[in-house]
Design a protein around this nucleic acid. Structure first.
Lengths: 331, 331
DNA sequence: ATGAAAGCGCTAACAC
DNA sequence: GTGTTAGCGCTTTCAT
């Protein structure tokens, strides 16, 4: 048998006070006589009362829940990011709902809509296809948004990677080892991480005298399968690359596997560099060289910004987290 | 400037009908004249109305949100499980909040409490320290719980691994290769996965004539560090093992790394078997042999059970997912 | 086919 | 220091 939940007025009755007093005992937002406090607490304990957060939310307009909108929680990068975010938001007892979009624009929009309907307190999003205007409904509703992406976004809190130096080092590293033809497994066109990273690689390649020809830039999803397919495509070119850089570690792992299958040895036949340095990257053999972008820290930084914003900060903030080139056996 | 949210009575006024009608147009729970429907929909669109889910929840007592209570979303096993759960719950437009407990009992309890306060619709939990009684408040509140664990639990929906055969095969495999002394990196004592698995290994070892002495059973967390420490401890025994089985893949990876550091070659000096088969397990070199327990499927099964329960099923269901021994290079 | 009105359980003026 | 009361925005019963 399912019991009636105990409400605040039950507690009030049991303690011989008004609901107001019960509310204030619980919130501490106004002084209450010690004896009263005690009586209320006793009643709360005796009846097993738990405040109904839904009613509280309706009244206050705050749900103490934030949304994290990402392509896929099963991608270790986002899982680590989620962990960082949750740890940062825990102090304020904020819950986090995870929204997996599969990098699909319709899903991204649908979750944003959900956020408004549910009056969530804030959103952290790693957008794949969204444009700034898509966030208008959130602005209108006064819901803070923190974006994690490498693109320029006006008037928003942004956490992004500053990979200029790291990419330059990586390319220099390749140049030193005699590489002259670079291939890149980039993200889908128009995606907020792929394009900026590609641009950085282009610039670095130019600086260090490497070619990065258009037919060696392969677009695709951030998956192992896409990485493997990309490599096969590159190697079928008239002039295949001697070194490949990947938009993230998952695709780099795909490249690694496809290379193995083809009998290509890494790094002797092909140098390989990933991005992100998820935990797995250190487990592959040969070890994956990578541009390290610490996911946990990205998440906790997003959380910090969100909390500040909820606390009343109004000016948008942009945080650039410096990435680091981690050479390993594979270059 | 933050706008006033548009409410249902705004829509009603704009459409020249009552809120009742607006509500019914939206829910479709009673017939409405086509002309009226149209007028309402037009008003909804024109004003950009979004139903306030919080108010709806307060009224109906359902929040269309479920909680997933796990030790750590950054552990790939749980991330994959989470993905499976979310995909299963998406059809019903249920949100999932992720609760990381760090395998801490107090955190587990605190999140359960949260669930009741927030009137969440259901819980999926992979308990580490909870006992059945801890779930009483949820029963009282009529909140369905689905448990993912290998322990016996009365009167609850449970998804568990049936590893009897797989473990027997794994041990037989070791026996065939001449192993006689087995070590085990088990989970913490009293934990719902470690103990049953240990018992299965004990039984299988007995059947196949392998020793699994008490001083080669090392308890610890499900982490790489714990796995590494466990191996060092085992190897310092007077009679070290020739084969090691691990309660999960993460600890197996730790063992792998510690073995490398010690100069032990796997599998020639030491055979190694993990559990779970998270994506990473296929990336290590030597490849990790493992008892495969498909996390995604665990999650989606939990989701299915939860939905059924929300739909009115009352009898508890136990689903045993058969695991499979996947021998790879490391045994 | 539609509407009036009573809450769901809380918070926070505004009294006293 | 404490209480009365008016909502927050919906759903749903009961009328019409």
């Amino acid at each position: 048998m399912e019991q009636q939940p105990v409400t605040m007025s039950d507690v009030a009755r049991a303690a011989g006070v008004s609901v107001t007093t019960v509310s204030y005992v619980l919130s501490g937002k106004r002084p209450v006589a010690p004896a009263t406090t005690e009586a209320v607490q006793a009643a709360v304990a005796r009846l097993g009362f738990r405040l109904n957060t839904v009613a509280q939310s309706l009244r206050t307009g705050r749900s103490s829940t934030a949304a994290l909108i990402i392509p896929d929680i099963a991608n270790p990068f986002y899982a680590e990011l989620a962990r960082g975010l949750q740890d940062a938001l825990r102090r304020e007892r904020l819950h986090v709902v995870i929204c997996n979009t599969n990098a699909d624009r319709a899903e991204e929009l649908s979750y944003l809509d959900d956020v408004v309907r549910r009056r969530l307190d804030g959103v952290v999003i790693t957008p794949q296809w969204l444009v700034t205007d898509d966030l208008d409904p959130l602005r209108a509703a006064g819901i803070p948004v923190v974006v994690s992406a490498d693109t320029e976004l006006s008037d928003l809190d942004v956490v992004r990677a500053d990979s200029r130096e790291a990419i330059d080092q990586a390319v220099a590293h390749l140049a030193e080892r005699g590489h002259r033809r670079l291939g890149m497994v980039a993200g889908p066109t128009g995606t907020p991480n792929g394009d900026p990273r590609l641009a950085l690689y282009r610039a670095a390649a130019r600086r260090h005298g490497l070619a990065l020809p258009a037919d060696l830039v392969v677009r695709g999803k951030h998956t192992r399968e896409a990485g493997a397919a990309a490599l096969r495509r590159m190697m079928s070119r008239a002039q295949p690359p001697t070194a490949v850089v990947c938009v993230n570690d998952r695709s780099a792992i795909g490249v690694l596997e496809a290379a193995e299958d083809t009998g290509l040895r890494i790094p002797s036949d092909l140098a390989l560099i990933g991005h992100d340095d998820i935990e797995v990257a250190s487990l592959t053999r040969p070890r994956l060289s990578t541009i390290r972008y610490p996911a946990y820290e990205v998440g906790s930084t997003c959380g910090r910004l969100l909390l500040e914003r909820l606390d009343g900060r109004v000016d948008p903030v942009e945080v650039a987290l410096r990435t680091r080139f981690v050479p390993r056996e594979s270059t």
